[in-house]
Nucleic acid binder design. Structure first.
Lengths: 226, 226
DNA sequence: TTAATTTGTAATAAATCTGTAACATTTGAA
DNA sequence: TTCAAATGTTACAGATTTATTACAAATTAA
């Protein structure tokens, strides 16, 4: 993980906390506490992602956003907006100015990191680690391949996403609802029992020559990766 | 890749990191942590490219630059300048003293390598390979030719660019959008299905006497070079 | 200019995936 | 042990995605 992240945020404490943690994670981080100055620095720094405070002393986050989107070189720079609770989230959501995601303060660092990775995964997949592993199971997000015990396993798109989801938190039990929410595209409604069928298909695919079962059924609760 | 690269840079940690990585890449690397000494060594070493810190304890990078440009033997030595953030990049950009490129610290190694190759490709094309290869497939960027198993394969311009793109990151799956963005000229809009047709044409062309299929379809995701 | 090649698209065929219902089996509480 | 609820399994009919083909328009070469 060696992407570059720029932070424009006027609360020094937040900058310090986030910068320190992101650097520990391996990111190269630079920051500014003010909009105009930040914009200049940003252009020199050429980050892979921008954390942008919604409310700044001089320029608003929105202004900065627009400014960036006009600049040909940074037209596609991923931006995560940081907002204080209640700061018109609706407006932010609907932004055409092109915010890629947003977080409401106070936010947990863990959540921020997750969002950062998710956004980076879309824009610069090579920066974020792309392999998920569990025991003898390996899923390569870049190549979209799955291996069990070094043998490739063929999965359909839904089974792939399902396994990907389980691999993100092995051992954790997910209810059918949680699985639906996370694995199926938004706003799609499928019968809850449908999941059972996909679980079966996934099980069947990854159980190369009667190796040990990797998906555990937790009666009345859901499923988990062992 | 067996060109010679000289580094003049006073931060030992940077030297170590860069030198180690470049050597892994196949370059022959030598370095100095000081300007005057470095100049002498450089002349003996006769590198194909110089990585030069802008700010040095004794001589400034600019001084070194000028010095080198006066020397008939090194008049054309490609130089990539390394600058700390905020070190008057404008001046550097406009330099007639002839810096070929510059990078702002902190920089990612990946970016450095890309710049080095780009600069070398201009000055010493023979050092940087202009061939892309994958298994028995070979694409010559200079001559614009493609070979499969040593037999030349004729491709139309679009198929050529398509294959070139795939060869830059074999095994990686690209969505149709990504392919469009990278293979088609900017601001051109073609139907996403059009890509399927070009994939077909490319497949047909490179599948000389039923050799193994090289382009993989990943349903719901895109295509990849195997 | 004409001829040859290349391109994009639409139409259709083929392949693959999905969701569901129906029936089978397992589980655990009473 | 019994029985209802939960999960497993299967088959299948759409639905979706990709492959293939043909063709007209655009581009390039002769």
């Amino acid at each position: 993980m060696n992407g570059k992240i720029f932070i424009i945020e006027d609360e020094t404490s937040i900058i310090k906390l986030v910068q320190h943690n992101l650097e520990k994670e391996g990111f190269i981080v630079s920051s500014s506490e003010n909009g105009n100055e930040g914009l200049k620095q940003l252009k020199k720094f050429e980050p892979n992602l921008l954390l942008l405070d919604w409310m700044l002393p001089d320029l608003s986050g929105i202004e900065i956003c627009k400014h960036i989107r006009k600049d040909n070189k940074f037209k596609t720079l991923p931006i995560i907006m940081l907002t204080a609770k209640g700061e018109e989230e609706d407006k932010i959501k609907g932004l055409e100015s092109g915010v890629d995601d947003y977080l409401t303060k106070p936010f947990s660092y863990k959540e921020l990191l997750a969002r950062i990775k998710a956004v980076l995964r879309r824009s610069n997949p090579e920066i974020v680690s792309n392999n998920l592993q569990f025991e003898d199971l390996l899923l390569d997000r870049i190549e979209k391949r799955v291996f069990r015990n070094n043998l490739e396993v063929k999965l359909g798109p839904t089974e792939f996403r399902l396994l990907e989801f389980f691999l993100m938190n092995p051992k954790r039990v997910y209810s059918r609802d949680q699985i639906l929410e996370n694995v199926w595209p938004n706003n799609i409604n499928v019968e809850s029992r449908t999941i059972d069928v996909h679980i079966r298909r996934l099980r069947q695919s990854i159980n190369i020559d009667n190796k040990k079962e990797l998906i555990r059924t937790v009666r009345a609760s859901g499923y988990s990766l062992i």
